[in-house]
């Protein structure tokens, strides 16, 4: 499958972006990844990341390798994509209480520190950022965006996979995509009370 458009999976960390990368990759659109960030307890099947993406503010040359591939990018970096290219984005959403809980577990495992905010404040900050980026994406003529809920994906994988396939042109192997969905890896189900 080839296309001049850059295909991106985006969203907040722990919103199912790695799973979606894995699904699209298995479906037939290869992931652009350096495999530097290996799988671990948080993402046993790998992160499907490309380190160069983090340097987008100073180097966008890696974008030349993106046509015909899918690349993962955290939501905040979408603003830094050059305007001269076209993008289609599968944007993952997830219950924000689950996202924040899962991020907390990941920070603990990594032994790093995150925001100096309470979980409730972090949920509100993410709500605000997601509203802003949705509005910004709506205004960009060179972006096509498909919002996909991780919670819906866990509840009804075939429907969500079919919708992603349709958004990406209909050429993916949906059965292969679905083989990646493992409910056992849906671990942070309880939403926080904010």
């Amino acid at each position: 499958m080839t296309t001049d458009v850059t295909t991106i999976v985006s969203g907040l960390p722990r919103s199912g972006t790695s799973l979606m990368m894995q699904m699209i990759h298995s479906g037939g659109l290869p992931a652009l990844t350096d495999e530097m960030r290996a799988g671990d307890e948080d993402n046993p099947r790998g992160y499907f990341e490309l380190e160069a993406v983090k340097k987008i503010r100073t180097d966008t040359s890696w974008l030349d390798d993106t046509p015909g591939r899918v690349v993962k990018m955290v939501h905040l970096l979408l603003y830094d994509l050059p305007g001269a290219r076209s993008y289609r984005v599968v944007f993952m959403t997830r219950d924000l209480g689950e996202v924040v809980r899962s991020q907390g577990v990941m920070l603990q495992r990594r032994g790093t520190t995150g925001a100096a905010l309470t979980p409730g404040q972090l949920v509100k900050a993410y709500e605000s950022q997601l509203a802003k980026i949705r509005q910004w994406l709506d205004e960009q003529r060179n972006f096509e965006v498909h919002y996909t809920s991780y919670n819906d994906l866990m509840a009804d994988p075939p429907t969500v996979a079919a919708a992603v396939n349709a958004f990406l042109g209909g050429g993916l192997d949906v059965d292969a995509m679905l083989r990646n969905v493992d409910p056992k890896l849906y671990r942070q189900r309880q939403a926080l009370s904010t």
Partner: peptide, 20 residues
């Protein structure tokens, strides 16, 4: 308040390894 929380989100993403 928004600017302050945006800075905190950046710290969070840095801690998680998603931005530099």
């Amino acid at each position: 308040e928004g600017a302050a929380s945006d800075e905190e989100v950046e710290k969070q993403l840095r801690g998680l390894g998603y931005i530099e």
